[in-house]
Amino acid sequence: MDQLSQALVSGLLLGGFYAIMVLGFSVIWGVMGVINLAHGEFLMIGAYLAWGLFRFFGIDPFASLALILPLMFLVGYLLQITLINRIVERPHLMTLLVTFGVSIALANLAKIVFTSDPRNVAVAYSGSFQFAGVTFPIVKTIIFAAALLIMGGLHLFLQRSRLGKSIRAAAQNKTAARIVGVDINRVYAITAGICIALTAAAGAMLSPTQAIFPFMGPPFTLKAVTITALGGLGRIPGALMGGLVLGVTEIFVATYVAGIGTNLGVATSFILLVLILVVRPQGLMGGLRPVDAEAD
């Protein structure tokens, strides 16, 4: 029983991180139909930025979000207007290939700049506390709380603000949004900026909990796809639900399948992904964009 509740709590905490990790990916896919294969690489960049700020300026990873968010917003904005907006209306294959190319380029750029030695961010509060007989790692608990906070904020922004409404309009019907005067390219660029910033923020928050290295990205991209398939496109509650399901599944596999540890995280989520896609091609909650969208 004790092991069960511990595994459940660990899974939920991991799931909270997954939920915040997946948001950017899910919203980009939902709004512009672009599957961003460089997602994990932006997470990696966020983690490296947090490491650099911590190592050289002594800034706490959570405080460094104040710098990382605007910086990465700019990066995402520029990437969108220079690159992705050119091909966003072309066949899916082209956006896949371009983001794949970007991911390879970013990972190897990071390898050149930071070398492939793993880096760690050793914060002072890296311990854990006991509550009701269950161990809560402090950092992961903070991430979980921050995840809920950020998701609430993003939800409010998308539902209430004028800009959020035009983003949703562009996602629902591009032509109609254009007719009523939404500048699609600008909305896309802002969306990409927000999403890349969120992804980098997730990476920065991740930095105290695991080693940072240039090729850490692809597993996160893959998990993001799985969670999106679980929870639906561009839906914030769906991202939370999907993240929690994947987190709990992963920890349960690690706890109850002997001799594996957490080494099979990607394999677990991959099997989950293929199962979902084969059994329910529209995603578990529905709403995955039909692939033949490029034909109509």
Binding site: L83, R86, I87, M94, L97, V98, F100, G101, V102, S103, I104, A105, L106, A107, N108, L109, K111, I112
Partner: peptide
């Protein structure tokens, strides 16, 4: 390898 990734982007574009 960095150039390889960029080259892929350029070819597609």
């Amino acid at each position: 390898l960095l150039a390889l990734g960029l080259l892929l982007v350029l070819i597609v574009l």
